[in-house]
Computed example of a mutant assay.
Amino acid sequence: MKHSKLEVVEGIAYVTINRPDAMNALTREAKKDLLQFFLFANEAEDFRVIILTGEGDRAFCAGTDLKEMAKFSSIDIEQMLWLEHRLNDAIRHSNKPVIAAVNGNALGGGCLIPLICDYSVVSDSAVMGFPEIKSGIPASIEIAIVHKFVGLAKARELIYFGETFTPQEALAMGLVNRIVPKKDVLDTAKAIALKFMTLSPTALRLQKELVNKWIETDFVSAVETSIYAAGLAFTTGEPQTAINNFLTRNKAKKSK
């Protein structure tokens, strides 16, 4: 994988998003890399649990790469979101448990990943949130299930305003499983992985399928509608302007 690293140790696959200079934001190629891995993982026999984390000490994943997205057309954004939906679906429906080891900031699609994994361990210093609306596009795809965890009123608040929240707030809302100091994230994720490995693989696979069924009631139509809405937003030019403004401000901050 070009944009991610894979290491298998003692039956655990450690998958690391490897774009630390870009806050581990995901380009289309990076998403394709991860999708290919998760499809392959279903047939793999040398590991039973997957730990997904980010390279470096700043970010777990900052969502979609804004520099790439700033150049997108309406068709591009729809195609990218279908790709991201396929990746999220592959994570959720992996026949092996997937643990998110959130070692740093998790924003947008990166904040969604812990929610769609089977278990999440989060650094106590991480910044989390769904800031898509601040880039001129509606939050979409698997964010359609956030209300099932936090309730409709809270989901509206998180998504409408796009404000960040702390891991402690995420835990209180039921979005993550556990908060630990940053230095303990991977070790804690490994301990959870070993606990998963004591369970019957068949029973665990069947239980995962059932849990997904419970969540997915009318889910497909929600995804289709949200992808269309994101594509429609890109026809206005507003997302491109908002993203470029953000990139310009960020560049100015770094040059000081």
Rank of each mutant, 00 (worst) to 15 (best):
A144L: 01
K256H: 13
P97I: 04
G151N: 04
P167R: 03
T248L: 13
L81C: 05
D65R: 09
G237A: 06
A106Y: 05
L35I: 02
E68K: 12
V121D: 01
K254L: 14
S255N: 14
K2W: 02
L194E: 15
K213A: 10
K182L: 08
V176T: 12
D89A: 13
S94E: 07
A189K: 03
T225E: 15
L186Q: 11
R86K: 13
A70H: 00
A153L: 10
T188Q: 02
A25T: 09
V220N: 13
K190Y: 01
T27L: 07
L194H: 08
A90D: 05
T53A: 07
W82Q: 12
L158W: 02
D76V: 06
G109I: 08
K154W: 00
L52D: 05
I75H: 11
L115M: 15
E238A: 05
V121Q: 00
M173G: 06
R28T: 12
G231Q: 04
K182A: 15
N212W: 10
L81F: 08
N105R: 09
A153I: 06
N245V: 03
V9L: 09
P138F: 05
T202F: 11
E10P: 00
L232T: 12
A252N: 15
E55N: 11
A100L: 05
A62D: 08
P239K: 10
T166N: 03
F60D: 01
Y228D: 13
A193N: 10
A139E: 12
G231D: 03
L107F: 06
E216A: 10
T164I: 02
T27A: 06
D33L: 07
I75S: 14
A230K: 04
H147N: 12
Y160K: 12
G231R: 04
E209D: 08
E7G: 00
F38Y: 10
P167D: 04
K208Y: 00
K134E: 13
T236P: 05
I91D: 05
A144D: 10
T241W: 00
M80A: 11
D218C: 08
M173T: 07
F149R: 13
A101I: 01
K195N: 12
A30R: 04
T225H: 12
D118R: 02
K253G: 04
K134R: 15
D118M: 03
R156E: 08
N18G: 02
L87Q: 05
S200M: 07
L158D: 06
A144P: 01
